[in-house]
Design a protein around this nucleic acid. Sequence first.
DNA 1: TCAGATACATAATATTCTTATGTATATTTG
DNA 2: CAAATATACATAAGAATATTATGTATCTGA
Lengths: 113, 113
Amino acid sequence: MIYSSELIKGTLKTIVLKQLENNKRMYGYEITQRVKELSLERILITEGALYPTLHSLEAEGLVTTETEYIGKRVRKYYSLSPEGKTKIGEKISELADFMNTMKFLLDINPQTV
Amino acid sequence: MIYSSELIKGTLKTIVLKQLENNKRMYGYEITQRVKELSLERILITEGALYPTLHSLEAEGLVTTETEYIGKRVRKYYSLSPEGKTKIGEKISELADFMNTMKFLLDINPQTV
DNA sequence: TCAGATACATAATATTCTTATGTATATTTG
DNA sequence: CAAATATACATAAGAATATTATGTATCTGA
């Protein structure tokens, strides 16, 4: 089951920044594959969503980039900037808090996983 | 702290439908006030977001409406349709599942609340 | 009386997604 | 070895849905 896209809206930047926090340096395609794998195929980030998001994060100064060539193919690596490192902590706190509020609002009981 | 609007995107219909499940019959303004109260002022639904959403839910057949006059002032009550009752269960399941995936992706530890 | 709350609605604008398209290289498989 | 698939970037048109602003009107409390 793939999550409906509305759900992912609003969390995409957080997901991307978190991957960069975990892995130091990643390129776009790698992020989509990693998230697909970690989410057991349930979060599929399309290219049309990913690249504008990465460009936006760069414009906000939250990530920095380095372009490399692997053979003849270009690859653009992204890393968290110092501001990005601060931001990801804030975003995760806010999301965690929001999820607790949603659980309460929607009567979702904690699961024993 | 008010949640950033991006977070609420994608969950607004679920929040509204859940309130209607809990309270059988509510009008728009009442929903905004109830959600504001239950969320401890952290989820503020604006009118520009609420009314188009309610109209959309009606167009989808998930809610039915009755208009009443309280004195001279009109009030439009919303109730879940049978399809809406089914839908809210599905939406909450999906959201609960999504939140578990997000916790895992973002290394959010369960809180002892 | 008059400010603020109640109660609906819509329009212009912004954001951000989906879907489609474009370009190109690398790898796997029949 | 040819063709399909995967890798890898990017942008544009269109859709969905939010913000912000505006409009109308009634009710209530200080």
